[in-house]
């Protein structure tokens, strides 16, 4: 299935694009991460920790729903937004 991955600054700078179209094997976040490791290793390096999980500092929004638990099923055409919630004033 096809997932649209939206990347906010500075993650978009890593791949030079704001949006990526990603083909995933099945509807899990793991398969999305696996596809990223394959197609965009530089981005994967930025966001995946040493255990192979998505770094906890990366926020994930599936369509309009923020995820605290990544155990969800993705559907064809879903929009996944990734960003680092940096703060300031």
């Amino acid at each position: 299935m096809d997932i649209t991955l939206k990347l906010l600054k500075p993650l978009n700078d890593v791949v030079g694009q704001n949006e990526l179209s990603i083909k995933v094997e099945n509807g899990t976040i793991e398969s999305l991460l696996a596809a990223l490791s394959n197609d965009h290793p530089k981005l994967a390096e930025e966001i995946i920790d040493e255990k192979g999980d998505l770094d906890y500092r990366i926020n994930v929004i599936l369509n309009d729903k923020p995820l605290s638990d990544l155990n969800v099923s993705l559907n064809d055409g879903d929009l996944v937004t990734l960003f680092i919630p940096i703060s300031g004033g």
């Binding site: 500075p10 919630p85 940096i86």
Partner: peptide, 23 residues
């Protein structure tokens, strides 16, 4: 820190997109 160069190149306006993304 990974965050330092981001804050130093874009400053606080970076937050606009983040807040806007979550509505």
């Amino acid at each position: 820190s990974k965050i330092t160069p981001i804050l130093g190149s874009m400053g606080t306006p970076l937050l606009y997109e983040i807040s806007n993304t979550i509505g």
